[in-house]
Amino acid sequence: MSAGTSKFGNAFLPVTSILLVLLLLWYVFAYVMNAPFQRELDQRAGENPSFSELVIKTWSQPKPTMPAPHQVAQRLWKTVFGVKPWSKRSLVYHSGVTLSSTLLGFLMGTGLGLIIAIGIVYIPVLEKSFLPWIIASQTIPILAIAPMIIVVLASINITGILPKALISTYLSFFPVAVGMVKGLRSPEAMHLDLMRTYSASNAQIFWKLRIPASVPFFFTSIKVAIAASLVGAIVGELPTGAVAGIGSRLLAGSYYSQTIDIWAALIAGSILAMLLIAAVSMAQSFTARMMGAQP
């Protein structure tokens, strides 16, 4: 425990100071990017503001090129706490839509990845024939076919959550499959031999040695997988024509140049990603404790 806190203390000061510098830079950047348009506006209105007035104005435009942090924070606060969570204007509603397809896709992807990993570990020919194609499948930009999947499935009357979840599935099965192949193979030869001297069956070796040994690999992979399925869900919402979800908020914001809306949706998506990863980390430490790891 003490090692953990000291590590945290080590990173805390650098992280906060870098974040503060970034925040400052954001304000400077907002001024630099909004100033030309603001000067033009003032010139047309015949005003001649002082420098400090100009700075304040660049930080409070309604449709800025670069919104200032407090504008984004205000919009985020208003759309999260200011409206009812089930209203279409609420980011909670849109996050929920994205979250549901993220989780469905994540579950399907994790299941698929586990099945593939077990198959590869137990059927040797699959490693030579199937694994290269799985790896090749990830070098192609899968997200590029997201709109096609959505439109094609819509043409045979499959709409709603499933098409988006399928994209998340495709993105999230790969890290799980590759990580679990490593994990299921991680027991040392000594341990496998020991199991054999106990005359353990294949199923017993699987449940009592391979599965427990693969747990750390499993959690590392699903952390990557859940982040990937969130990206898949967001991109999957783009071609549906801005109905609901964080991706549709991004698209609507870009149609109407509502930059503050785009940034608020972006921050909401980031918060969602952090919450999901935090949830996985909590599940990881809970499982480690259940398996008897020393805290």
Binding site: M33, T65, M66, L143, K223, V224, A227, L230, V231, I234, V235, I246, G247, L250, L251, G253, S254, S257, T259, I262, W263, A265, L266, G269, S270, A273, M274, I277
Partner: peptide, 15 residues
């Protein structure tokens, strides 16, 4: 690295 960075695409198109 874990965030959906792809979401900055509309902002970059505006810029």
């Amino acid at each position: 690295s874990a965030l959906p960075i792809i979401g900055i695409a509309p902002i970059m198109v505006i810029w």
